[in-house]
Design a binder for these strands. Structure first.
Length: 430
RNA sequence: GUGGGUGUAGCUCAGCUGGCAGAGCACUGGGUUGUGGCCCCAGGGGUCGAGGGUUCAAAUCCCUUCACUCACCCCA
């Protein structure tokens, strides 16, 4: 009986992991430019951490977490997101005492037990970044700038949506106003929205049901309810973005699903991913550190969905695994044994070398070399063994122009000699 | 958790109202005793997702089940 991977969990095969690596490298580069350092976090935390950070009544905490009881009866959970852990670590190691501002990024697997679909898995990966310690608009803008730079560097065509969710001073008033408005439209709202009305009225704004959209079209706007400090903050964030020509759309219906968000909130939306089209989401969470037992330190951050981003990159280009510089073709057992050592020497000299089995025919091996896209082929047959010289061919040249290379040369000299094969001035009449 | 779609070769998929399990690509060997790509010939590969039922006969019809997938929900 075959054993398959667990539902919602999957393997990343080389074709995809190559794209993955490229994206990760770019993230590290972009984040470093803005002064972020990596924090490597555990995958398991106490359940209580997420319950308190994300919100007891969110879907994530209520029905999507992989929670289990450890042998000592404590309740542990596979992390469903990264921000809570960053803040736990921030408090635990008193980072606020060491420096006034911490810029941290992390990457790794997250776990949510949802029904899998395109762009949504039970184990998925996020790259996240957090800035703890500053709440001025410049910081919000800087974080968005960094995101913009990152997506631009990857040549991805995405749209950034921005909104302000207000804070503890103004949001409650808005929530009540929205609830009242929702009550008045009760008859036309869908069943889901009836539930939202009770649990989280803000979510009425982003229902996809056409009827609900229409009903909520002239609902009170959050922007009209912002208190003066929040309004001012948001205005200045936008001013910085304009100053740097960052394209973004103001989306007053943008609502985030985690309870801790306030003020500046944003999403990065991509085309061509189906319904799971948010590749990045984030926002400010000023009360969260305090709420988790730390000092009153403001914070803002985002998380990028790696799988979704990789899917995007794959539709735009396809990376191939690296082609070997040299493909060694041994003919027979004696040649194979020599080729084995030769391959190792050249690899240690820095060349990418592929080696076939000496039991296969010349034609088959040449075919394989062509398939892999090898630049040069070195043939090691009876003749070559006697002469102590390998026959080298440049696979990119159409004419058959083999060169004999001395097998006793040290690796660097041999690599040099092989490279020279293609620059030989011998009659080349392509 | 709720709906829809799909399960046949390594991959993409044909296979009608039941009648010998198929194609393309990939892989292997050959056409040229030692020179790839194009072309030609040949070959290996299958529990037709699983279990049960109907039938002389099931990939095909019926039931059950599992998996995958898309959407809702939610989110990255």
């Amino acid at each position: 009986m075959k054993i398959a991977a667990v539902r919602g969990f999957r393997d990343i095969l080389p074709e995809e992991s190559a794209v993955w690596q490229r994206m990760e490298t770019q993230a590290r580069a972009s984040f470093a430019a803005y002064g972020f350092s990596e924090i490597i976090l555990p995958v398991i935390e106490k359940t209580e951490l997420f319950a308190r950070a994300i919100g007891e009544t969110t879907d994530i905490v209520e029905k999507e977490m992989y929670t289990f009881t450890d042998r000592d009866e404590s309740s542990l959970t596979l992390r469903p997101e990264g921000t809570a852990s960053v803040i736990r670590a921030y408090i635990e190691h008193s980072l606020s005492h060491r420096e006034p501002v911490s810029k941290l990024f992390y990457l790794g697997p997250m776990f949510r037990r949802e029904r899998p679909q395109k762009g949504r898995y039970r184990q998925f990966h996020q790259i996240g970044a957090e800035i703890l310690g500053r709440d001025d608009p410049l910081i919000d803008a800087e974080l968005l700038l960094m995101l913009n730079d990152f997506f631009t560097a990857l040549r991805l065509d995405v749209a950034i949506d921005v909104n302000s969710l207000g804070d503890a001073a103004c949001r409650p008033r808005y929530r009540e106003s929205l609830r009242a408005f929702g009550e008045s439209k009760l008859a036309v709202l869908c069943e889901n929205c009836h539930a939202r009305l009770q649990r989280n009225p803000l979510r009425l704004l982003d229902c996809k049901e056409p009827g609900c959209r229409q009903a909520m079209a002239d609902a009170p706007a959050l922007t009209d309810f912002l208190c003066d400090p929040c309004r001012d903050h948001f205005t200045r964030v936008q001013a910085y973005l304009h100053q740097e020509n960052v394209a973004f759309a103001l989306n007053p219906r943008l609502v985030r699903g985690l309870d801790y968000y306030c003020r500046t909130s944003f999403e990065v939306i991509a085309q061509g991913l189906g319904s799971q089209n948010a590749v990045c989401g984030g926002g400010r969470y000023d009360g969260l550190v305090e709420q988790l037992g730390g000092p009153a330190v403001p914070g803002i951050g985002f998380a990028i969905g790696v799988e979704r981003l990789v899917m995007l990159l794959q539709t735009q280009e396809h990376d191939l695994s690296p082609a070997p510089d040299l493909f060694i073709v041994p003919l027979g057992e004696a040649a194979e044994s020599q080729a084995f050592s030769l391959a190792r020497r050249l690899r240690q000299g820095g060349a990418r070398v592929e080696l076939e089995s000496g039991s296969r025919g010349l034609k088959a091996q040449m075919r394989r070399a062509g398939k892999l896209g090898a630049r040069y082929v070195l043939i090691l047959g009876e003749n070559e063994l006697v002469a102590g010289k390998g026959t080298v061919r440049d696979m990119q040249s159409k004419s058959d122009r083999p060169m004999a290379i001395d097998l006793t040369l040290p690796a660097p000299a041999m690599i040099e000699a092989i490279r020279n094969v293609s620059s030989q001035p011998s009659a080349d009449k392509d």
